[in-house]
């Protein structure tokens, strides 16, 4: 069963909700919501390639994966900031700087792709592995960080929102972890797939369901946060 289209639609909703959330709320939420918003591009670009003018352009596909990696870095930075705030109650910075810095990193990545040779299939695979590795390990770190944040803000109105984020990262871990597993063991290669069909099947299903629930939980979490912060 191909859920790609549904996933794209759900990520589109989740991305728009998170971006809208970043505009109307405190500065510390900007990094987190912009990070989640960027997943939209990381997911949308590769899936939308067949319908876009840049079909088959490896640089566009590479940028999709890189933006996906940037998104987990930005949101992890946001959670770190929130954790520091929950410990020290100190908060610095400006929303605009977050937007501009993120745009700057995306721009720099684009320049990096453009000044280098056209990414081959192997290069794209390596970029995806790097991206998924980041996602997997930062998801685990974020789960622990969010647990600590939750303990710090336990009885505040926002606290349950962080439990929702833990669910989000568990879904993301399953989604990206199973993808990374397939990539590291090359389970998607026909010869390997034939040798380990069950592992591949389980990993594929896990990735698909993880992706689906991640998009659902991201959209739902931001809507829930919006309700809590009303």
């Amino acid at each position: 069963m191909d859920l790609s289209f549904l996933q794209v639609v759900l990520w589109l909703i989740a991305g728009l909700v998170s971006f809208y959330f970043s505009i109307g709320n405190a500065r510390v939420w900007t990094s987190i919501s912009v990070g989640f918003f960027l997943i939209l591009f990381g997911e949308l670009l590769p899936h939308a390639l067949p319908f876009l003018p840049g079909t088959g352009v490896p640089q566009v596909e590479a940028m999709g994966y890189i933006i996906g990696t940037i998104s987990i870095l930005v949101m992890s930075h946001g959670f770190q900031e929130y954790y520091v705030f929950s410990r020290t109650l100190e908060l610095e910075g400006n929303k605009v700087y977050v937007y501009l810095t993120t745009l700057g990193v995306v721009g720099a990545s684009l320049v990096f792709i453009l000044i280098n040779p056209e990414p081959s299939e192997e290069t794209l695979r390596a970029i995806r592995i790097v991206g998924n590795t980041n996602w997997v390990f930062l998801s685990l770190i974020n789960i622990d960080l969010i647990r600590k944040i939750y303990l710090n803000v336990k009885d505040s109105p926002i606290s349950k929102g962080f439990l929702a984020f833990m669910i989000v990262f568990i879904c993301i871990f399953l989604w990206k972890g199973s993808e990374l597993y397939i990539q590291v063991y090359s389970l998607d290669l026909p010869s390997v797939m034939d040798a380990f069909p069950l592992r591949y099947q389980i990993s594929q299903v896990t990735s698909m369901i993880g992706n689906l629930f991640a998009s659902l939980s991201v959209g739902g979490t931001f809507l829930y946060l919006a309700k809590l912060l009303r």
């Binding site: 505040s156 926002i158 809590l228 009303r230």
Partner: peptide, 12 residues
């Protein structure tokens, strides 16, 4: 009020 915005909504 600015600090509280990080953990609660405007009405609260």
């Amino acid at each position: 009020s600015k600090a509280a915005k990080l953990v609660a909504g405007a009405s609260k």
